[in-house]
Every structure is written in C-alpha cells, then in structure tokens.
Design a protein around this nucleic acid. Sequence first.
DNA 1: CGATTACAGATTGTTGACAATCTACAAACT
DNA 2: AGTTTGTAGATTGTCAACAATCTGTAATCG
Lengths: 229, 229
Amino acid sequence: MAPASASASSAAIELLQSHSLTTLVQRELERRILAGELEPGAKLAEEDIASDLNVSRGPVREAFRALEQAGLVRTEKNRGVFVRQVSVDDADEIYEVRAGLDELIGRLLALRIQPAQLAELRELLKKMQKAARAKSVDAYYPLNVRFHDRLAEFTGNRTLVAHYRRLVNELHLYRRETLARGADSFPISTREHSEIVDALARGESDRAGKLMYEHAMESRDRLHAALEK
Amino acid sequence: MAPASASASSAAIELLQSHSLTTLVQRELERRILAGELEPGAKLAEEDIASDLNVSRGPVREAFRALEQAGLVRTEKNRGVFVRQVSVDDADEIYEVRAGLDELIGRLLALRIQPAQLAELRELLKKMQKAARAKSVDAYYPLNVRFHDRLAEFTGNRTLVAHYRRLVNELHLYRRETLARGADSFPISTREHSEIVDALARGESDRAGKLMYEHAMESRDRLHAALEK
DNA sequence: CGATTACAGATTGTTGACAATCTACAAACT
DNA sequence: AGTTTGTAGATTGTCAACAATCTGTAATCG
C-alpha cells in the first residue's frame, strides 16, 4: 500500500479507536456553545439533540456530564441541562484567575521562548495591526484569541494550557451573553501586545509576567466599561 | 412540624433533588481514588463498580465522563477506564501552575483577609506545629492540606478554588503513586507557613504572593529530592 | 518447537424501554 | 374572578438487552 494511502487509513483507524459517540457529541455541543449557536441559558433537551445527531440519549447524557465538568453547562436534576450563564461577578472571578495564569505564562515563556516562536508571534502581531487599522473587529478578535493561545502553548506546559483554555472558554460565554446586549468595545491593545513580545524576546521574565497580568486586567476593565454604556 | 424535623426533611428533599445516582457514584469513586483505595493505573470495570454500588452501568459510565474531565481517570476506547497515572514530568507541570495560583492567592488574600480568618489560620498553625514536634506525618499531612485549602477559600473566588483543588487532587494522585515506592519526606515547612500568615496579616500583598510561590516550588523540590533516594 | 490464526469468553459501546418527575392546562372550589 | 387541585403530556433518570470490540487460549501451520 502506498504511504499516503497507508497514513490516511491509519488516520481513519485512529479516529475510530479514539472517538466514541460521546466524544463526538461533546465536541459538537462545545462547538455550538462557543459559536453562540446555543445561547447562554438555552435548554439542551436530550431527545432533540439525540435525534438531531442521529444517536441515542446515552452518549448525549455522557457528553453532558463532561461539559458540566468543563463549566460550559449547568444541570438541574429532573429539569434538564442549560448552557451556563456567566454573571458579571463570575466573569470578575474568572478574569482574576486568568490574569494570574497570564502572568505565569509571561514569566515562564520569557525563559524558554524559541526564535521560531517569536517569529510566529510577530507575524500574528502584524496581522492584528492590519485588522486594527481596518477597524475590523471580526478579523481582529480571532487573531487576538490565537495570539494568547499560542503564548500559552509555547510554555510547553500542557496543564497550564488546559486550565488557561477553560478560563478563556468561560469568558467567551460571558462575552457571548453581553454581546446580545450590544456591549462590545474594539480592543485597542496592539501596543500592549508589542510590549509583551519585546519583553519575551529580551528574556525579561518578571516584566513579561507583569505586562501580561496588567493586560488581562485591563481587558476586563474594557469589557466592564463597555457594559456600563 | 418541629423546626428540627422540618429542617431535617428539607435536607432530605434537597438531597434527592440535587443528587442523582451519577453524582453519588462520581463522588464515591473520587473518594476511593484520592484515598488510595484505587491505585494509579488500576482498571475500573463498569460492571464491577455497578454491582458493587448496586446501580446499573449507565450512571457509572456518566460518572466516568465527569471524572475524566476532572483529570482523575483516563479512558481508552473499548479497553476501559483507568485511574490516572501522574508522571514526574506531569507533576512538574502541575506544580508550576499550582505555584502560580498560590502566588495569586497570597496576593489577593493579603488585601481581603478578615480577622476571623487570620485567627483560624493561626489556630491551624498551632496544631501543625504540635504535629511537627510529635513527628507525626499522619497528623500533619491533612492539616497542611486543610491550611492551604482554607487560604484558597478565603479569597472568596470560587473559580480560583475550583482550579486550585483540581491541581491539588492531581498532585495527590502523584503523591499516591510515589508513596508506593516508599519515597516521602516529612514536610518541615512550619516556618514558611508562619511567615505567610504574618505577611497576610500585615497586608503585604506582593510579599505574601512571593512567599506562597516559593513555598509551592520548594514543596515540589522536597518531593523530587525524596524520590531520588 | 515457535509463530500464527481461529475461536470463546468477557468487557465495553450503544440502543430502546420502563419508571419517576416535572410542566402546563383545565376543572373545581372559595 | 382568582386560587387551588387534579390530570395528561412531555422530559429526565435508570435499567436491561443487544451489538461491537478486545483478550486470552488452543489448535494449526511452517
């Protein structure tokens, strides 16, 4: 068998071996929640989802338990499961923890970052500046998410990445809820991003950490300020 | 109906309303894993657990999905679920994140701590010093866990507490695995604990954070050193 | 005699059915 | 008329059976 075909079928085998229906349902629901197709507070009826995805209720219920533990849904016994609603107070808590992790990311990364990684970050910065000049929030937002996600990944600490992503997901839920109320400000943080990358490049551990902590707290303040309006 | 009886039955109602079999199975398995009754790497057979707890396989499988997301078990499709094994590298990652959260806890708490909370911490310190003088690890260890857990709780940030506890649970799993290999050192950290409480009492935010960060990293080094032997 | 294949038993993945609970609407009562 | 009670429908919680996959053993082949 040709190598290409061999790797393709081995990928298919891998898929079947690792992905149960529960996993696929979980992933799809997570996608729909984060994409906003399922809004905060929306009820997830087992039967509806099961028939929609052409599976029985068992895998759906198992996916619910995983999503609950991941903080994306809330379960009321005998009532159903609902997309989690993140209150302002909840968001404050989450931002506080995220700022702590961001500081850690900055400190660790300044000691470990590789030239190729720095290049990728600078590449992202360019695209973000371009989107900022064009005042295109739709282009800027995903780049910003990616920028911060790469920072976390570059630490090489998978535990850190997992905890960081969970917080970002929960905040995404908050943003999703406030978005409906028309409150959203354009993030004018390209300057801060550049300073962070510069500190990382110079290996200034404490400074990079401090910059990232402050950046996270300011992004919290910006969202709150936007809500006041 | 008498108040006492009323509150007792309302508690029973509360229990039935909030706790499904899945929840109870999840809690029991978590207890057994953290207590070491189920050792890292041990296989959890659905049928065995189901018949042991007098429930069917459904709730057991749902509990598995929650425990998996909580990082306590690992699932291999068509093979079964196993108590998670935390490697030295994993533990290093976890300690790194925990140190970051501990620093955050110290910084936040120094700004918010209440007199009654300080009193409770000092009370715990006394008991720990007594256990240390008696060289009783069995008495010291749970007090140490409780001390740090209370520090997290006193921040009033439930998100922070949740993430902190998850890390502690995972480290508990690591400790459990190394324990079998006879490597464990007596924690001689009463001095550091006192300094932390003093910094909190004086409201020295940055110093409390730094002390807690270093305390976490040293406790990592202690465990590693014990493993070398 | 060692390696491979075929089979049987056991375990997990999935499904559909039954029991318990909740929700909504209508009838009865004050 | 408004409130309460009762009932029917729908939804969730639990269970048991079926299908698919894996593991270990024995028979077969080189």
